[in-house]
């Protein structure tokens, strides 16, 4: 054990530099967040993830965000267990009817202000399952979506870009009335 620990100390960190985001890229991702108003919000967000009908590949890439190479927490972004601690609801999957009630309850349990991120093609548009008789389809049909991160599954770097965009926009502005 000592050997592993000492080597890790001297090897230098594995974590990679943060992705650079151009203004165009930010505005493309955040296109739907026009309900933001001017007010400060801290540069830290707690994220609650819910699988609402995913094939589980989107989850694998969200989990990868916590590995040493992407190191999500250095951006002030933390995945939390309870919706009561969460600012952001990150939803994956094609929104099955069977998950509708649980997703709604999770959203309602989050204290305002809160934001919703549709993660992966399934959540963004219903994806390949949009026509399924047992799916509601795009997340937007059930909850107000603030950010769409496309991909099947989205690359972890893409997930990072999306979440950094969210936090950097919230750094300058916060939510308008009605939801906070």
């Amino acid at each position: 054990m000592r050997k592993t620990l000492i080597e890790s100390l001297f090897r230098g960190k594995l974590t990679e530099p943060a992705p650079h985001l151009s203004d165009e890229e930010k505005s493309a991702l955040i296109g739907t967040m026009n309900r933001l108003a001017q007010r400060r919000f801290g540069r830290s967000l707690a994220i609650r993830h819910v699988d609402a009908g995913s094939c589980n590949a989107c989850e694998l890439e969200i989990v990868a965000l916590n590995n040493a190479l992407y190191d999500l927490e250095r951006f002030g972004l933390k995945i939390v267990a309870s919706p009561r601690h969460a600012d952001v609801l990150m939803v994956t999957g094609s929104l099955t009817h069977n998950m509708g009630a649980a997703l709604r309850l999770t959203y309602d349990a989050m204290p305002p202000p809160k934001w919703v991120v549709a993660t992966g093609d399934c959540a963004c548009t219903g994806g390949l399952f949009a026509q399924s008789p047992v799916c509601i389809g795009a997340l937007g049909q059930l909850l107000p979506v603030d950010l769409h991160i496309p991909g099947c599954p989205p690359h972890p770097a893409m997930l990072l870009r999306g979440l950094i965009t969210l936090i950097s926009c919230l750094g300058d502005v916060a939510h308008e009335s009605g939801r906070d």
Partner: peptide, 11 residues
């Protein structure tokens, strides 16, 4: 279980 039933086979 059954929460993520998407009817893949039907599709």
């Amino acid at each position: 279980l059954g929460y993520v039933h998407r009817d893949v086979l039907g599709l």
